[in-house]
Design a protein around this nucleic acid. Structure first.
Lengths: 240, 240
DNA sequence: CGATTCCTTGAAGGTTGTCAACGTTGGTGG
DNA sequence: CCACCAACGTTGACAACCTTCAAGGAATCG
């Protein structure tokens, strides 16, 4: 069976691609953008790829009724703009949640077209796209199947997992720079209800969210609410 | 400004990649699978990529409470399995909605690793991943911001657009092989409510859905419900 | 033709949205 | 230091939307 060998080789390829891309990002000078601004504010060309070095950002979508939905949330270490680089409107609707630091690969220097010439990089980019898809799928499942408590639980667990994976959290506490209105836009709830549910989670000693600080008391309780059940135990995720 | 040239070149690259991949799909013998079965039923290896030649399929997610959520719906012409090929569990949870015909690229013949060696193919695969992401984002927005009527409207419009783009629909009627329970699983609603909303859309002469046949009476009415407003007019999508 | 699945509809109740008001916080200037 | 202000968080009452439960009708398939 060559499958095991292939997967090992694949993992190596991904590591190489990761370093390739990382080098490309380092080539350009980093920039900083203030909180609550559009990502395009600090970038001239729209066909760019961003590496979020520090801070949080999010992908928004405006509806004609004026309501703003948040489709994805980017954490330190994430790459932004891959999915939209092949479409006309790139990085529009990405806005910062905190002040951030980014590295960019400019369209003039290297388009996605050029990046794809290297197999390892192409693989790594495909992997990154898959990661973003996975996040969307998880959120999609939560929105379509869970009530407000379940959605909040899913969100709190997801951020915790993503931050942990990158060593950005120790213990059961982390920083969540989202206003309750933004949490609502992300989970499809109103501010008032987000507030109510957070209170109930606090009263039941499951998790505490206040002043941009999350503390998880009962991980299993959250997992139960999120409907994750036995899935977590099965998937040993060794993601980078 | 080389940007215009680049985009033209990019579009050519995508066409080439498309043909490349198409040729790969044709190399393997096509298969058929009955309705309501797992996609893995007709495939041995799990690390495969599928080209859906005919019929509909969907991506499911099981929750520990037994509820099934539908995360994406695949139409004739779609490629399935790209996003999960870099993860351990591929094609699980993909199940057919009708009887289908597929072409597969087997892991033994060519892994994603190998496909990525060709730049055009790599670009086209990235484009496909972006397409799937775009679908997820649209659904995400609908679930998070719209009520049942808006979600139904979004779904009806999306299928119509995707089918039109591939020349699979003429006029304002198309075939929708989804049971109301499945529509509910896709939009995060119960069967009963899907039924009620469909009735109201019919009563108001906006759209008619019965017996797996959709007829759109009032496109603008649907767009208004979907909150698409002026977005549609702006985006001239020339997708393949 | 029976049996199963799906669609349809009603009544009751729960979850969430809406609206409005008040409390809290942090920053700014007097 | 305090007063003020603006933005955010918090809470309650009420209404709307949606789910749940239940039952009957229609369609499909053996």
């Amino acid at each position: 069976m060559t499958l095991a060998e292939d997967r090992v080789g694949l993992r190596d390829q991904l590591q190489i691609g990761r370093r390739e891309l990382s080098a490309r990002f380092h080539a350009s000078p980093p920039r900083t953008i203030g909180a609550g601004e559009l990502l395009t504010a600090g970038i001239k060309s729209s066909a760019t790829i961003c590496h979020l070095v520090a801070g949080w950002a999010c992908q928004g979508r405006d509806f004609s009724n004026g309501h703003l939905a948040i489709l994805d949330i980017y954490l330190p270490g994430d790459v932004i703009g891959l999915d939209s680089v092949l479409r006309t409107r790139a990085l529009s609707n990405v806005l910062t949640l905190t002040s951030i630091a980014i590295e960019v690969i400019n369209a003039k220097d290297a388009t996605l077209d050029e990046l794809m010439t290297c197999r390892s990089t192409a693989l790594y980019i495909a992997w990154l796209l898959g990661q973003r898809q996975q996040r969307a799928d998880r959120l999609l499942g939560a929105l379509s199947s869970l009530d407000a408590r379940g959605r909040l639980a899913t969100m709190l667990l997801d951020f915790f997992k993503r931050l942990s994976r990158r060593g950005l959290v120790t213990g059961s506490t982390y920083n969540l720079p989202l206003k309750q209105a933004q949490i609502g836009a992300y989970l499809g709830l109103t501010v008032a209800h987000v507030n109510r549910v957070l209170r109930s989670l606090r009263d039941e000693r499951i998790a505490n969210v206040e002043k941009h600080a999350v503390t998880i008391f009962d991980v299993e309780g959250l997992m139960r609410l999120a409907g994750d059940g036995q899935v977590m135990a099965a998937t040993g995720n060794h993601a980078a």
